[in-house]
Lab assay of single mutants.
Amino acid sequence: MDVFMKGLSKAKEGVVAAAEKTKQGVAEAAGKTKEGVLYVGSKTKEGVVHGVATVAEKTKEQVTNVGGAVVTGVTAVAQKTVEGAGSIAAATGFVKKDQLGKNEEGAPQEGILEDMPVDPDNEAYEMPSEEGYQDYEPEA
């Protein structure tokens, strides 16, 4: 019985440690998101679009440190934060509304985080759909 109880105690310690790591990862992701939003706020009209992409990228980098179902929630929060940063930029006159959601080359930025393969159960990952990809044929 002692062996059984000791095993359960060790398992509990492992769960607590994993929860603490997840909590730490979420806190880091939130900190990076805040950094990115402050970065966007300090940019001029020309830099705002690039700044919004930076927020998304920093958040995406930190999301990889967070495991399990938390990833889905962090990704949703990050996307809403990026959308909010863009709205703030438009409201303050840093950028025109028609410039939001495009990178410096004018290509749409939507789907940055949505296409990231995420499995809350950590069982399997699927690649994003290939609808947006084109076949590449090298020139002879």
Rank of each mutant, 00 (worst) to 15 (best):
Q62A: 11
P120T: 09
E137H: 12
F94M: 04
Y136Q: 10
K10R: 04
V37W: 14
K80V: 07
T22F: 10
V71I: 13
A11Q: 00
K60E: 01
N122K: 12
P138Y: 10
G51L: 11
T22Q: 00
E61K: 12
F4A: 00
G106D: 05
E20F: 14
T44P: 01
F94H: 05
A56G: 09
H50C: 15
P138K: 06
V118Q: 02
V74N: 01
Q134F: 09
V66S: 02
A27I: 15
S87H: 14
A90Q: 08
V95Q: 02
G84S: 10
D121K: 06
E35C: 09
V52C: 03
Q79A: 07
A27C: 10
D121H: 10
K6E: 03
K23L: 05
A17T: 05
T33W: 14
K43N: 01
G106S: 13
E131T: 12
K34E: 00
T64N: 07
E105W: 01
G67R: 10
L8K: 00
A89M: 06
V15W: 08
G106H: 13
K96Q: 07
V55M: 06
A18E: 00
E57V: 05
A78S: 05
A78K: 05
G93D: 03
S129V: 11
T92Q: 02
D135I: 10
S42L: 08
K34A: 08
S87L: 14
V3Y: 03
A56L: 14
L38W: 09
A30V: 07
A53G: 03
A91G: 05
G25L: 12
Q62P: 02
P117H: 08
E110T: 13
T81W: 05
E114T: 15
Q24G: 05
M5D: 00
E139L: 07
K23Q: 08
A76K: 09
T81Q: 02
K102L: 12
A17I: 04
S9N: 07
G7K: 06
A17G: 06
T72E: 09
D135A: 04
P120Y: 05
V49H: 10
V63Y: 09
K60M: 15
K34R: 07
T64Q: 11
G111Q: 09
S129H: 08
T72P: 01
E61D: 10
A85T: 05
L38F: 13
F4I: 11
G68N: 06
M1A: 00
A17H: 04
P108G: 09
Y133N: 13
E137I: 03
T59S: 05
T44G: 04
T22K: 00
T64D: 04
G67F: 13
G101D: 14
V70F: 03
G7D: 00
E28M: 14
I88F: 02
G132M: 12
A85N: 02
K32W: 13
G14W: 07
L100M: 05
I112N: 05
Q109S: 10
T64E: 07
T75Y: 15
V15T: 01
P117I: 06
K96R: 09
Y125P: 08
T59H: 02
L38G: 01
E114S: 11
A11V: 15
V15H: 00
Q79Y: 09
K45C: 14
V37K: 01
Y39I: 08
A27E: 01
A107D: 14
V70M: 08
L38C: 10
G7M: 13
G31F: 15
V48R: 01
G93V: 03
K45E: 00
G86Y: 15
E131M: 02
S87A: 15
Q24V: 07
M116E: 13
K10D: 01
Y39P: 00
D119M: 14
A89C: 14
M116R: 13
Y136W: 07
G84Y: 13
K6G: 02
A76L: 14
L8Q: 00
K34Y: 10
K43R: 06
N103R: 11
N103G: 07
E110D: 07
A91P: 04
V70G: 02
V40N: 00
E114R: 05
V82W: 06
E35W: 09
K43A: 04
M1C: 00
T81C: 09
V49G: 04
I112A: 02
K23Y: 09
K21L: 10
K23C: 14
P138Q: 04
A107T: 14
G111K: 12
E104S: 03
T64I: 13
A76R: 07
S42R: 11
F4N: 00
Y133W: 10
A56S: 11
A90E: 03
E46I: 02
A85I: 10
F94R: 01
G73D: 01
E57H: 09
G84H: 08
V63K: 01
P138G: 12
V118Y: 09
E105R: 10
E131F: 08
A69P: 04
E20N: 03
E105K: 04
V71F: 11
D135L: 08
A140P: 13
V70W: 11
E105Y: 12
Q134G: 10
V95W: 08
A124D: 13
H50Q: 11
A107K: 07
V55D: 00
Y125L: 10
V118C: 06
D121R: 04
T44A: 08
P138L: 06
S87K: 12
K34C: 07
E61A: 06
K45V: 15
K97F: 15
K43P: 00
T75I: 07
V37E: 00
D121W: 08
N103L: 05
E13D: 03
A107S: 06
T75F: 14
L113E: 12
A85P: 04
E114Q: 12
L113R: 10
A30E: 00
A53H: 12
L100S: 15
K6C: 02
V82D: 02
V95M: 02
A56V: 13
L100Q: 11
G51Q: 09
E110A: 03
P117W: 11
H50R: 14
G14V: 15
E110Y: 07
P108T: 11
V118T: 04
G47H: 13
E61I: 06
G73T: 13
E139A: 13
E83Q: 14
M127I: 10
V77I: 13
L113H: 12
Y133K: 06
M1N: 00
G101Q: 07
G106R: 05
M1I: 00
V26D: 00
G36R: 10
F94G: 02
A29D: 00
A107C: 07
N103S: 10
T54M: 13
Y136D: 01
V95L: 09
S129C: 07
I88K: 03
Y125D: 10
E83V: 04
E123Y: 13
I88T: 03
L8E: 00
M116G: 05
V55Q: 01
K23F: 15
V3H: 05
V95T: 12
A27R: 08
E131I: 06
Q99F: 14
V48E: 00
Q134A: 06
K60S: 04
Y125N: 08
G101Y: 14
V77E: 01
Q109P: 05
T81G: 04
F4C: 02
V52I: 07
A76C: 12
G106Q: 05
A89T: 05
A27W: 13
E126F: 04
F94P: 03
L8H: 00
E104K: 05
E57Q: 10
F94V: 04
A78R: 09
T59W: 09
A91K: 07
E105L: 10
T33F: 08
